[in-house]
Simulated scan of single mutants.
Amino acid sequence: MPRSGATTGWRCCPHRRSSATPNSCAPRSLAPHLDEGEMSVGVTATLHHKAAVPVGAKAVYTVAAEEVDRKTRFTFTVWDEAGAVVCEGTHLRAAVDVERFLASLKAARNDG
């Protein structure tokens, strides 16, 4: 049994594309709700693939925030041109202080 599209000659969009659009929408949609000096960071993401979408085919995404707070969970669904759900998942983001976050990154680099 073939293990990838590369072995069958059939090309489809990789799963990272299915999550890229929702994950790029999330920070932009949270920005107006953040305090001065804050940013949002991704905490977790789930992705459930149900079907492949051929390269060049159109996909429709819906992304919704369940509640905007210090941690905000987004849900997303992706449909193919025929209206079938091809992917769905969640993305959790947290509001953090930018300076504190950058300091923790610097400290982590110095420990390693």
Rank of each mutant, 00 (worst) to 15 (best):
P14Y: 10
H15S: 15
V55Y: 03
F101D: 00
H48E: 12
V98N: 00
T8C: 12
A108F: 07
H33Y: 11
P14Q: 11
G37P: 02
F101W: 09
A94S: 12
L30S: 07
R109D: 14
S18I: 04
V68W: 02
T75H: 09
C12K: 03
L34R: 10
D69Q: 07
F76G: 01
R73K: 14
C25Y: 11
H49G: 08
S4G: 11
A107I: 02
G9V: 12
V55Q: 05
V41G: 09
P27K: 05
V78A: 10
V53D: 01
G9K: 04
A57D: 13
V53W: 05
F74C: 03
G9W: 10
R16E: 15
E88H: 08
P14I: 11
R16I: 13
H15C: 04
S40Q: 07
A57S: 11
T72M: 03
A26W: 01
A26Y: 00
S18L: 12
K106T: 13
T21A: 09
A26T: 07
G89H: 03
C12F: 15
G9H: 06
P54T: 10
S104Q: 08
A94L: 06
V98R: 14
S18M: 15
N110Y: 01
G37C: 09
V98F: 07
A64E: 14
R100L: 08
S104I: 00
A64L: 09
G89V: 07
E81G: 10
R11I: 15
G37Y: 07
S40V: 13
L34S: 04
C13W: 12
R28K: 08
R109Y: 07
R109G: 12
R73Y: 01
L105M: 14
A59Q: 08
A57R: 07
F101V: 01
V53M: 08
G112K: 14
E36D: 12
A31M: 11
K71E: 15
A57E: 10
R28H: 08
C25F: 12
C87F: 03
D111Q: 13
C12Q: 05
H91A: 11
G42E: 07
M39Q: 11
R11G: 04
F74S: 02
A65K: 00
L47W: 05
S19T: 15
K58L: 14
M39L: 12
G37D: 05
A57V: 00
P2D: 08
K71C: 05
T62L: 02
V85L: 02
V86I: 13
E81C: 03
S40I: 03
L102D: 01
E66V: 14
T72F: 05
R100F: 06
A84C: 06
T8Y: 09
R100V: 08
A107R: 15
W79L: 12
T72Q: 06
N110V: 06
A31I: 09
A82H: 06
A6I: 04
A59I: 06
H49I: 15
W10V: 15
A52N: 06
R11A: 14
T46M: 02
A64H: 05
